[in-house]
Design a protein around this nucleic acid. Structure first.
Lengths: 295, 295
DNA sequence: CCGTCCTATCGTTTAAAACGATATAATGCT
DNA sequence: AGCATTATATCGTTTTAAACGATAGGACGG
């Protein structure tokens, strides 16, 4: 039994057919059939039930499948461990909430890209749930998510804690005034933004219904929009210092638990960190907004 | 990178030379050289430092080595998992203290061999330390040892607890009488017997020096020898009931901790039990001398 | 300075894997 | 029912990769 055999087996099991597996593996069907057959003969067990719509794993196949996956994983990790000589290089895929990426990470990313040109840094964005899954599936080495996540296979480090505040035009003085308005519009960076969800929760909890939403691509456009009285938004307090001092917007604080947001970096406990990731986290740690205290 | 490549790599690293690895792998040296070279090119890292007495792993090689071992292990486990269809068959290698094997296991082993003719049962004997190592190295699936072992990677089940007693000829009434004798001989099943060590500890703690030892092959010959007054021995109380009732020997109990002996079955926590092992343990559990309570 | 013990390299041979075409079987649709 | 579609199985051929065997070269020790 060979790792190549297991790779073929895994593809057949996952795709439910030898033809589909052959296509994915860039080979021909007869080849896949032959290798599966060889494997079955070696193990003295039928691995698949053949029927006219493809194949389904037998009991033996189901027993073997997790091993096929683990072997593939292990070989991949072995390759990376051997190739990683301590000098950051190669691919580094990390995940992030879109908001975090846009508002916090961009300076860090450019700084990293300059410092380590040999690293191909890739950022994948998604929701916290999607990113947790991506980390578990090893599609990304780690991810910035909204914590705490508290999963046994994940190690999490608090990167920063921030206070979320509601921003309105300067004409509005209190949160109650905000709530009284009928044609309330919320302004967010992207529709999938995690702050949007948070803001909507805050408002619905206070009895506001029938929200309208607006989406903008940059922080500046949102601020302009809010200060013009077109809508309200929610942002970390630390991001809006200068604008507030201009008096262009009013800040409305929220009670403790509602305002607290923790951004955490998660990664698999059992996966070793590449040099590139280590360098990235070092850089992160050196940044001003880093919170030392972590779990 | 292939499992075969890693197998070659591992052999070279372990044996410290391509020639030696070639011999072990039943191939030629040029082949080993070529495959190592291919692997090095794929990983873009030199894996070995070549010198005139063989090779030594580089940093990259040292990083790769544990993966090579784990992949080999995993493939082996995968094969066994896939081949094991629930019907006990194939090889079952277990370890045991020689004493346990001789005095306790033999009926179990014959019973098992009859019930499961498709299983090739192999028993490897050794000291507790050797057996623990054999289990950790996966040379045996599990082993009967003198516990507790208390190792984080091992799961242990108490098979039985027994009371060890000192046996002498009927003429001797107390332990003190035993100790007073100058020409004390101890009689054991085998020189490596764990009861021998135990008995010697008991005696030296009481100031006896200059022990002489005798070895016999069967329980019956030992009993005959002891009842004839040629020496003393130590055995589990439960093994000697009928003989004692004959009045052919005197039994001398020992204070609590010294007399207690626990036999435990240990196996790796992370290795799945084969059907053969499961069947064996089921049979063990059904035996009369099984202790239910175990963690 | 030569014998011994290594690894590296080359051309040849051999074995295995991939390919492509064809056979066969089940399903769904008209 | 008939036919197109989508599957897997099998065969002979081709291609590719691995193993082999012989030879060369380099370091070490007596």
């Amino acid at each position: 039994m060979d790792a190549g055999d297991l790779r073929v087996f895994e593809a057949v099991a996952r795709l439910g057919g030898m033809n589909r597996a052959a296509a994915e593996l860039n080979t021909v069907q007869s080849n896949v059939t032959a290798r599966v057959k060889l494997l079955e003969e070696e193990l003295e067990q039928k691995l698949f039930e053949r029927h006219s719509r493809g194949v389904t794993p037998t009991a033996a196949g189901r027993r073997l499948l997790p091993y096929a996956q683990r072997v593939a994983q292990l070989l991949d990790e072995a390759r990376r461990a051997a190739m990683d000589d301590g000098k950051p290089k190669g691919a580094l895929v990390i995940g992030s909430l879109e908001t975090t990426a846009a508002l916090r990470l961009s300076p860090l990313l450019t700084q990293f890209a300059e410092a380590y040109p040999a690293v191909d840094l890739m950022l994948r964005t998604g929701t916290t749930a999607e990113l947790v899954e991506a980390v578990l599936q090893r599609h990304v080495e780690g991810a910035f998510v909204c914590g705490p996540v508290d999963h046994p296979d994940l190690q999490e480090t608090t990167i920063f804690r921030e206070e979320l505040v509601v921003l309105t035009s300067p004409a509005i003085r209190t949160l109650d005034e905000v709530l009284a308005r009928r044609d309330l519009k919320i302004v967010v960076l992207r529709l999938g933004c995690s702050y949007r969800q948070r803001l909507e929760e805050v408002l619905t909890r206070r009895g506001v219904v029938g929200l309208r939403r607006m989406e903008f691509g940059t922080l500046e456009s949102i601020i302009a929009c809010v200060s013009a009285g077109l809508g309200i938004t929610m942002l970390p307090r630390s991001l809006i210092g200068p604008v507030w001092r201009d008096g262009r917007m009013a800040i409305h604080a929220l009670p403790g638990p509602e305002s607290k947001a923790e951004t955490q970096f998660i990664r698999r406990r059992d996966a070793l960190a590449s040099s590139a990731l280590t360098a990235f986290l070092d850089l992160t740690r050196r940044s001003r907004w880093q919170v030392e205290a972590a779990d």
